[in-house]
């Protein structure tokens, strides 16, 4: 776990989006990252990330607002929450600590956002 502690002690600006991506994908949750999926009441988004103050899911469904849908801390480093979404495709990213944009480590599909990053795609059937 040394590597994880070392990484998580760094500051966010130093870590950058890529490291967040890697951390999310490799963090020591026994279950690892999970793609957004439909449950009763909406779509559940989750992200595994240690030592952060807030995680929000942002996308075309909330006008890219990083205050509209904050995830709640669950067990360990897991953050999750449910957003009611209409049927169809929606693009999304995560915003950590209100400022760091994170490419979703798991998604049904990915699409270029035109600004040098990739949005995750969630499909509501």
């Amino acid at each position: 776990m040394f590597w994880k502690k070392s990484l998580s002690s760094m500051t966010f600006p130093v870590l950058g989006g890529l490291t967040y991506f890697l951390l999310s994908a490799c963090a020591s949750s026994p279950l690892g990252p999970v793609a957004p999926h439909q449950i009763e009441g909406g779509v559940e988004f989750s992200l595994v990330l240690p030592n952060v103050q807030s995680v929000a899911v942002v996308g075309d469904f909330n006008d890219w607002s990083h205050t509209a849908h904050l995830l709640a801390p669950e067990d360990g480093d897991l953050w999750s929450g449910v957003v009611p979404l209409s049927a169809g495709e929606h693009v999304f990213m995560f915003v950590v600590n209100g400022e760091q944009w994170v490419v979703p480590p798991e998604a049904e599909d990915y699409v270029e956002d035109g600004f040098g990053q990739k949005n995750g795609v969630v499909v509501v059937r």
Partner: peptide
Amino acid sequence: RGGRGDDSSGRGRGGG
């Protein structure tokens, strides 16, 4: 505010 995504106005992208 969650209701925003719950409308059926086609905010989704080409949703099928």
